[in-house]
Computed example of a mutant assay.
Amino acid sequence: MHHKHYLDKRSVPFISELLVKHYLQHPGYTEIVVICIGTNRYSGDSLGPLVGSRLFERLEGNPNVHIYGTLDKPVHALNLQKTLTAIAGKHSRAYIIAVDACLGQYYKIGTLQLVEEPLQPGASLNKQLPPIGHIHIKGIINNYGPLNHKVLEHTSLTFVQEMSAVISRILVKSCQDIIPRLASKQLPGGQVPSRLPAGN
């Protein structure tokens, strides 16, 4: 796990460089999928959809990057499995990056975490949801405690928006660096790269 506070000016180059290095350890993917988990119903849980909407504005029309989970079309517990099934069918050779908000210790609030393994969404709320992606970014938006639903409802939206802006810059830079390194649609001999779990 790697981490930087979102206000640290080094957070964008530091985390994006690590993300690109992770991709280069597993080359052979032909496209990028970013899955932004969350809902627009609670300010604290809107980090993912806010990131997704920002990415959609910046990367719309790019044939190499596909964004799932925006404010208009969020990806959450109720439609997650359906979304992962659709992604597995449409993007079988995609490098998958997941984004989600999380709760943590109070002194870690504002920290961005890059974790080089699939995301386990809903862990703070004790939800059993399928793992997502090859790597993921989490933003610690508030303090973990006994009333986590209330915490999500009463998190500052301005704070979450600021954090989403930094995460989106990290991902735009990462995608721009990865795109030239993507494999062609056809690998020699019809090979398919190995994949980490993506919930399918």
Rank of each mutant, 00 (worst) to 15 (best):
M1G: 05
H5S: 09
Y6M: 02
D8I: 01
K9S: 12
V12N: 00
F14P: 04
E17I: 01
Y23C: 08
L24D: 11
L24H: 01
T30K: 15
G38N: 03
T39C: 10
T39L: 10
G44C: 07
D45C: 14
G52V: 05
S53P: 00
R54Q: 15
F56I: 04
E57G: 08
N64T: 02
V65R: 00
I67K: 01
Y68D: 09
G69N: 05
P74L: 02
V75I: 08
H76G: 06
L80R: 04
L80V: 02
L80T: 01
Q81R: 05
Q81D: 07
K90V: 05
H91N: 10
Y95F: 15
V99R: 04
D100P: 06
L103W: 02
G104T: 01
K108Y: 13
K108Q: 15
K108W: 12
L112A: 10
L114K: 01
L114S: 04
V115T: 06
V115Q: 03
E117S: 13
Q120Y: 11
P121T: 05
S124C: 15
P130Y: 13
I132Q: 04
G133L: 03
G133R: 03
H136Y: 10
H136G: 02
I137G: 00
K138D: 13
K138N: 09
I141V: 15
I141T: 11
N142W: 01
N143C: 12
N143V: 11
P146G: 14
L147I: 08
K150W: 15
L152P: 00
E153S: 14
T158I: 12
T158G: 15
T158Q: 13
V160I: 14
Q161H: 15
A165R: 02
V166S: 02
I167F: 06
V172K: 04
Q176E: 14
D177E: 13
P180S: 03
P180D: 04
S184D: 14
K185D: 13
Q186S: 14
G190S: 08
V192M: 12
P193F: 12
A198P: 00
A198F: 05
G199L: 06
